[in-house]
Amino acid sequence: MTISAPESVLDVISELLVERFEVPSDEVRASAPMRDLLTDSLMIVEMAIAVHETLGVKVEEDELRAATLAEFAASVDARRTDR
């Protein structure tokens, strides 16, 4: 999956959560803590890898545990645009 211009980082990460990690779509809200969406440490590691493969941004596991979906997406987006 590659990101197209109109598709936001939040949309891409939300899509990953639903499609790759089978998180119910009604639970994927901007205010949801990532640690609640990714319920075990393996999911967190896999998400870090998926974000790097899909968006080209390396993320730390601690980032995923500490942020809400919206905060995490904003952080990833800011690093994508810094290139």
Rank of each mutant, 00 (worst) to 15 (best):
M47Q: 07
H52F: 06
S14C: 08
S4E: 13
F72E: 07
L42W: 11
F21W: 11
V51A: 05
V57R: 00
S25K: 14
S31T: 14
I44Y: 01
A50Y: 08
E7F: 10
D11L: 10
A30D: 14
L38S: 00
S41R: 09
M47C: 14
V9R: 00
E71A: 05
I49G: 03
R20W: 09
P24G: 10
V23Q: 07
A67W: 02
V51Q: 01
S41V: 07
L37T: 11
M47V: 09
R35A: 14
R79Q: 10
L37W: 09
D26A: 10
R20I: 08
E15T: 15
A50T: 08
E19T: 13
E46C: 06
R83Q: 05
T68L: 02
F72V: 09
M43P: 00
A32H: 05
I44R: 01
S41A: 12
H52Q: 13
V9Y: 03
V18I: 15
V18K: 09
L17I: 15
T81W: 03
P24L: 06
P6G: 14
V9D: 02
R80D: 01
A5L: 13
F72Q: 03
A67Q: 04
A48V: 11
R83F: 01
V28Y: 14
S41C: 09
A73N: 03
E60L: 06
E15R: 15
L10P: 06
D82H: 08
R35G: 05
S31E: 15
R65A: 09
V51W: 01
L37G: 02
V76H: 00
T54F: 04
H52W: 04
E15H: 11
V57L: 03
E15G: 14
A5S: 11
E22A: 15
L42R: 12
A48E: 10
T2K: 12
R83N: 04
V9N: 01
A30W: 10
T39Y: 10
T68W: 02
E46V: 04
L37I: 14
S41I: 09
V45S: 08
V18R: 12
V51G: 01
L64S: 01
S8L: 09
I44M: 14
I13R: 00
V57A: 09
T54S: 12
R83V: 04
P24C: 10
A78H: 08
E7Y: 04
R80W: 01
E53A: 05
A30M: 05
R65W: 05
R20V: 12
L38R: 00
V18F: 09
E7I: 11
I3S: 07
H52P: 00
V57N: 03
M1T: 12
V28W: 11
R83L: 07
V18D: 09
E22I: 08
A74Y: 01
V28P: 10
